[in-house]
Structures are given as structure tokens and as C-alpha cells.
């Protein structure tokens, strides 16, 4: 399929990108790895009037330790995150998750900022960002993750706002991401992340609602000393997922419980 016609410009700095976005107006889009945007354009489900390519902005491609924070540049590719020794040491859960995104082709191109900005309900990083209280840094402000994901494919970003960094806390205790899918490169039918942190557990769920979900009730139960299998029963509390071709709402809720149990148990083994 062939996208509708569009303007194209390549930016070499965030300022320039911002200017270009202003110039082209509301229907312009940032182009990062292109692995969500271009498929939509080819199906003409997205018809931006202009693309501002940020792939030339070198400063957006970085992984930095910053005290008890880990700063991931928006243009950092999944493959870089997956194989980074810094990430493996400071936030191994993130490296694990990056290695589970799509297939090699997707991981070679797709970016941290792209996943966060695209906000697909089945995106994997948003779950981590939410449950770990990450900050999304843009060219204009810093947005806490819990204020960032608003709805399906909808975030707090303004039309001319560019994600520059995602700032995660350092956490290298027991952790696990259990991603349930039919084919290795498929998006999650349901995914569950578990991270031991500051003496408590953080539990996040992927693709069980329009935005990522933090399983507060499970975290609470664990805090009160519940066993993983008991706590996991609360994973579907309050969920109202939409069904799709791969899973009914019932099945998704069931998977949320089963995978939460497994994620905690397997994390305990790490």
C-alpha cells in the first residue's frame, strides 16, 4: 500500500524539530523508528501532512546513569536498550522487556520515545513507565507517567511537543516480565511485569485496558503478606478490557491473574 502524499523534513536538533512542527502545523508528525507510524500511513489510517524526521538528532540517542535514575533518550532503539550493560545492571527488567519487543527488525528500528508517544495499549514500555513512576521529559516539560497515558493512542503530549527522554528509577532487585503471545514477534495478548523495589512489589499490566494498568490491589495484598497466588487473584480487580481477535475480555482478565502469579513467582527466582 502507498501512503497519501506528505511533506518531509529532517531535523538535526530538538529546537529545529520543534520549529518544523510549528511550521507544518497540527497534522505534522514526528518520525522516529517508523515502525508504528509507517504501517498506519501505508494503510492510510494515518495521513499526516508532513513528517519531521528526528533520526538525525544524535543527542536523543543515549543511556545515562544519573544517581539513582536511569535516563533513556527518546531515540534509543530497542536493540540498544536490550544489550546495554548499564541497563542490565541498573534496571534489568527494562533490558528484558526491550528484548521482548517485536522481532529483530522491529528492535533495530523502534525507539523508546516512539513506543511511549504512540501509546498503544499493547506497548510494553508504558507498563514499566507507569508502575515504576518514570518521568517523561519533553522539550517543554516533565510529565509523570501516571499523568501521561490518557486513553487509547492518546497521551498528554501537545501537537508540537517532542519526547526527549524517559527517566526511570534504578531497580535491580527481583523482577520478571511475562509476555503472553502466540508468535514470538507478536504484541502482548496480556503482559505482566513484576519488580521488587524499595522493599515492596510493583506490578504492571499490559493490554488489559486502554492504557497500561498498575495492579495496586496486588501490590497491597503482597505488602500484607499474601502469597503470590493469593495476591494475583486481585490482578483483574477493576479491569474492563475490550475483547479482540485473540482474547475475550474474560480470557484477558484470567490471563492477568495467571500471569501475575507467574511473574511474581518467577521474579522471586531471579
Amino acid at each position: 500500500m502507498i501512503p497519501a502524499a506528505f511533506e518531509y523534513a529532517r531535523a538535526s536538533s530538538v529546537e529545529e524539530a520543534s520549529k518544523l512542527l510549528n511550521k507544518y502545523g497540527e497534522d505534522a508528525k514526528v518520525l522516529a523508528g517508523g515502525h508504528s507510524l509507517i504501517p498506519l500511513m501505508r494503510l492510510r489510517l494515518a495521513q499526516p501532512t508532513a513528517l519531521v524526521d528526528i533520526n538525525g538528532i544524535k543527542e536523543l540517542d543515549h543511556i545515562k546513569e544519573d544517581g539513582n535514575k536511569l535516563r533513556i533518550g527518546a531515540l534509543t532503539r530497542h536493540v540498544t536498550i536490550q544489550s546495554s550493560s548499564v541497563v542490565k545492571g541498573k534496571l534489568p527488567l527494562l533490558a528484558e522487556v526491550a528484548g521482548e519487543v517485536g522481532d529483530n527488525q522491529v528492535r533495530n528500528m523502534g525507539t523508546m520515545g516512539g513506543v511511549i508517544a504512540h501509546a498503544d495499549a499493547a506497548g510494553d514500555y508504558p507498563t514499566l513507565a507507569l508502575m515504576l513512576d518514570a518521568d517523561i521529559v519533553t522539550n517543554q516539560r516533565t510529565i509523570p507517567a501516571h499523568d501521561f497515558f490518557k486513553d487509547l493512542f492518546t497521551t498528554a503530549l501537545g501537537p508540537d511537543e517532542i519526547v526527549t527522554e524517559v527517566v526511570f528509577p534504578v531497580a535491580n532487585g527481583p523482577h520478571k516480565y511475562v509476555k503472553f503471545r502466540r508468535r514470538l514477534f507478536d504484541w502482548a495478548i496480556v503482559g505482566v511485569a513484576a519488580q521488587k523495589m524499595n522493599g515492596g512489589w510493583r506490578i504492571g499490566l499490559t493490554n488489559v485496558g486502554v492504557t497500561p494498568v498498575r495492579a495496586n490491589a496486588v501490590e497491597e495484598a503482597l505488602k500484607k503478606g499474601a502469597k503470590p497466588e493469593e495476591a494475583a487473584e486481585h490482578a483483574s480487580d477493576g479491569l474492563d478490557p475490550a475483547g479482540d481477535l485473540r482474547a475475550s475480555p474474560e480470557y484477558k482478565k484470567h490471563l492477568a491473574r495467571v500471569l501475575t502469579k507467574r511473574a511474581i513467582q518467577q521474579a522471586q527466582g531471579t
Binding site: L43, R182, R183, L184, F185, D186, W187, L245
Partner: peptide, 12 residues
Amino acid sequence: TLIDYSVPTANE
């Protein structure tokens, strides 16, 4: 699409 129509790959 080939996201929704699941053709197995060598992985599966």
C-alpha cells in the same frame, strides 16, 4: 493484515 492473520514463523 499479517498482524491479525497469524502465519507462524520459524520461531513457532
